[in-house]
């Protein structure tokens, strides 16, 4: 099956002399699944998604969306995509029903079809009860969910969702996740950017990790663990000195104990040793956050910008 999005050596520099926002990114996004783009603020996620959504021209490289070139065939692409941009807000004077219905009408759907799709999507996303409410009177989570509902109701084959849950509380985030999962069930391609690693892991069939405009890692979340040097984490509490643990792997202090990243064999050996000493121990595969730390060398929460532009 051909890729939904195919990037080859894609680069973007906003101005001469400035650091590249994207640097020779090559990746292939398969159709019909959620693809997560993760990275810190300024890593290049938004630049990538904006080029894919034909909102921004690349500086170099090739990008094809559904087989069409973003340079010169953008009309064909636009007929097949929909986007919720980062920090976008619905027009404040619309109610939830109008937001979805008028978006569909603007896309050229007729009134009957627009009504049918609007009713369905509001029902499915639990927004029917607030359909007559002005969007600016909704909570942040409901508002974002309404924006996702808007693109979900469309006939677009690819949905671009740029940080759809940033700033939302955990409950509101879960509400938006439900909407994204619905798109995934419909076998539509969703390109999702986020700096919440749990979100990326929970929703994405594949992930790409960007840092300073460069692609550092790409693949299904389960496979990414196999790509790191030390794929297991062991937490031990009490009766160990850090110097004792160093032979097992990479040691760092955590509250009340030590965290050791290790190969599978060493991790098992350490766990057994800890149990034999009666120490508290937990062992498991590394988390996405751990992988991020190992690959990038800093936490995704580290706010220092990765590049000049997002």
């Amino acid at each position: 099956m051909s890729a939904a999005i195919e990037a080859r050596g894609l680069s973007k520099r906003y101005a001469k002399g400035r650091e590249a926002a994207l640097s020779e990114v090559s990746l292939s996004i398969p159709p019909g699944a959620v693809y997560g783009l993760i990275g810190r603020n300024g890593a290049g996620k938004t630049t990538f998604i904006r080029i894919c959504a034909t909102q921004l021209l690349p500086s170099a490289g090739d990008l094809r969306v559904l087989g069409f070139d973003v340079r010169g065939e953008e009309r064909k692409i636009r007929e097949r995509i929909a986007c919720v941009p980062q920090e976008s807000r619905p027009l404040y004077f619309l109610n939830v029903w109008e937001l979805v219905y008028l978006y569909l009408k603007m896309r050229g759907l007729d009134a009957v079809e627009s009504r049918r799709r609007t009713t369905n999507v509001l029902d499915e996303l639990g927004l029917s009860e607030v359909k007559g409410t002005l969007v600016n009177r909704l909570s942040g989570g409901m508002r974002r969910r309404a924006m996702v509902a808007m693109v979900l109701a469309s006939d677009a084959e690819i949905l671009f969702l740029d940080e759809p849950t940033t700033g939302l509380d955990p409950i509101a985030r879960r509400e938006v996740w439900g909407a994204i999962r619905r798109a995934s069930r419909e076998k539509r391609t969703v390109l999702l950017t986020t700096h919440y690693l749990d979100e990326a892991e929970a929703l994405s069939a594949r992930l790409a990790l960007l840092e300073k405009g460069r692609l550092l890692l790409e693949g299904p979340p389960s496979e990414l663990r196999g790509r790191v040097r030390l794929p297991y984490r062991v937490t031990v509490q009490g009766s160990f000195l850090p110097s004792e643990l160093e032979r097992f792997g990479q040691v760092s202090d955590v509250e009340g104990g030590h965290l050791v990243f290790a190969q599978e064999g060493a991790a098992r050996e350490l766990a057994m040793l800890a149990l034999s000493r009666g120490a508290k121990v937990s062992m498991g595969p590394v988390s996405l956050e751990d992988i991020f730390m190992e690959v990038v060398g800093r936490s995704i929460e580290d706010d220092a910008p990765a590049a000049e532009a997002t």
Partner: peptide, 11 residues
């Protein structure tokens, strides 16, 4: 509102 970006990425 980034509404124009919503419009650009559409037909």
């Amino acid at each position: 509102l980034k509404f124009q970006d919503v419009m650009v990425a559409s037909p």
